[in-house]
């Protein structure tokens, strides 16, 4: 069983982002970047499947600028065996990421692809579903539990009303939700070891894909700010205000 796992380099979740002065995009110069949190969960799950003897090889993939090597090294330090960077400066919509991943899947022939459910920069929540569509595979999205069998994988999915469990034929696509696992901290010796693991760089052209976009960002702005209100002394005052001033109860 071979697993392909995707890692996106995004603005760290603790950083507050701002629009560029001219409103043309998001200011990302000189700010802390990290692995997308959902992708840490995806890598962790792959590593656990390998540690339990169910997976034999884990290939981590990132698509983007050359600095994406950093998140790939983190994935290698967590336990991935090798890494592939599809290097490009192009603006990547999820459909294009999915097309590049489709080409990589043809090349690597994994039995399982694990992605994060959502990138916390674009908040799209699309790439896994798109990849599954292009491959004609099933999609176990928003996964909070995986049980791997021989021909099938059972995926418990977080849905609006609770949980749903489905069995998907392998090979298949899974997207990781927050409660699938808790990612490990990488230890220093593993960071050192990761430096020696193979990291291959490809271009979109190597995969026969020409990046293109269908969206133009016209403007990026901050939403209207909400003003802080007042402090009230106790529950009695709160109830009086809610009843009399704003008629909310």
């Amino acid at each position: 069983m071979k697993i392909l796992v995707t890692v996106k380099r995004v603005v760290d979740y603790n950083v507050k982002v701002h629009p560029k002065a001219d409103g043309s995009g998001v200011e990302t110069a000189n700010i802390k970047m990290s692995m997308n949190p959902f992708d840490e969960i995806a890598v962790e799950e792959a590593v656990r499947l390998q540690e339990s003897g169910k997976a034999t090889e884990i290939v981590a993939v990132s698509i983007g600028v050359s600095q994406c090597q950093e998140v790939l090294r983190t994935a290698l330090a967590m336990g991935a065996d090798r890494a592939v960077l599809v290097e490009t400066d192009a603006i990547l919509e999820p459909l294009m990421v999915a097309k590049l991943l489709e080409a990589l899947v043809e090349r690597e022939q994994p039995d399982l692809v694990i992605l994060g459910k959502q990138a916390i920069d674009d908040d799209c929540n699309q790439t896994g579903q798109m990849l599954a569509a292009l491959l004609g595979w099933g999609q176990g999205t928003f996964a909070s539990k995986l049980t791997l069998g021989e021909q099938e994988i059972e995926v418990t999915r977080e849905i609006d009303g609770g949980l749903e469990t489905v069995a998907l034929k392998l090979p298949t696509v899974v997207t990781a939700d927050l409660r699938l696992n808790e990612p490990r901290y990488v230890k220093l010796p593993n960071i050192m070891k990761a430096k020696k693991k193979p990291l291959e760089t490809l271009s979109p052209g190597d995969l026969g894909v020409v990046p293109m976009t269908q969206l133009t960002t016209l403007k990026v702005a901050e939403p209207p700010k909400r003003e802080a209100g007042i402090k009230v002394a106790d529950a009695a005052e709160l109830v009086a205000k809610l009843r009399n001033d704003v008629k909310a109860i």
Binding site: Q129, M130, L131, Q139, F142, R157, D160, Q214, L215
Partner: peptide, 23 residues
């Protein structure tokens, strides 16, 4: 943009070969 729509719509878009707008 519920768990139903988020699961479904990107798959529709990819079959159509078009981008998708979320949320």
């Amino acid at each position: 943009a519920t768990s139903f729509g988020k699961n479904l719509m990107p798959r529709v878009a990819a079959l159509l070969g078009v981008t998708q707008l979320s949320d």
